[in-house]
Design a protein around this nucleic acid. Structure first.
Length: 195
DNA sequence: TTCAGGATGTACT
DNA sequence: GTACATCCTGAAC
């Protein structure tokens, strides 16, 4: 029970990705709380993973955040219009992170719906409810996360992860990662975890 | 229900 | 100029 400390992120990335399922992402937003339960993650390990932006020690302005200390938010723009939120793992200088792919609304659902669809929760169609937060771009849209939050310290008070003290999820699914067809042998790494 | 195509900007070649 | 850790829409089934 409590905010996840830096130690939580300072270890093997694949283990961290798995351990994040069932934890809560919490965001302080305009004086109120937005939160969701994590349902889907993927691991990206720079040292061995061609799908990772920092594969082979690649260092550019964009990837610089991946080299930050564990427990840092890495947020980047993808396809010109969506953002993806990652949690930096492993010691500083080891470019690895966990991509957040899915949430279940927990706190501030009314505001999440407004950010995501521009209308009230009660007005969402069944299709919109079903596809509320089941993708990385959707999560960032609902939580109003952009590159302005890139580099945020996840042990701070603005954006952090919370262990609600729930029993570990019983039924964790494992699979290949999504949208990385270019990554050669890394395409098949079983580094996607979901409930 | 699945599927093709387009939107859109930044990073990198 | 090309590719990209995506999502939405509209058409076909």
């Amino acid at each position: 029970m409590g905010k996840l400390s830096r130690d939580f992120y300072d270890r093997d990335t694949v283990q961290t990705a798995r351990a994040l399922l069932g934890k809560y992402l919490v965001r302080r937003w305009h004086g109120l709380w937005l939160a969701g339960r994590i349902t889907e993650t993927e691991a990206y390990v720079g040292a061995v993973d061609k799908a990772c932006h920092a594969y082979g020690g690649r260092r550019t302005p964009r990837t610089e955040t991946l080299y930050a200390p564990p427990g840092t938010a890495y947020i980047y723009l993808i396809y010109g219009m969506y953002h993806c939120l990652n949690f930096v793992t492993e010691p500083a200088g080891t470019p690895s992170a966990v991509l957040l792919r899915g949430l279940e609304a927990a706190e501030g659902a009314e505001f999440l719906a407004r950010n995501r669809f521009g209308k009230a929760l009660a007005e969402l169609t069944p299709y919109q409810k079903k596809n509320f937060l089941n993708g990385p771009g959707k999560v960032c849209r609902a939580l109003d996360l952009t590159r302005a939050q890139n580099g945020l310290d996840l042990t701070g008070d603005e954006l952090f992860l919370w262990d609600a003290g729930e029993a570990p999820p019983a039924d964790i699914h494992v699979g290949k990662r999504i949208g990385i067809d270019y990554a050669e042998e890394a395409v098949d790494f079983p580094w996607r975890f979901y409930l």
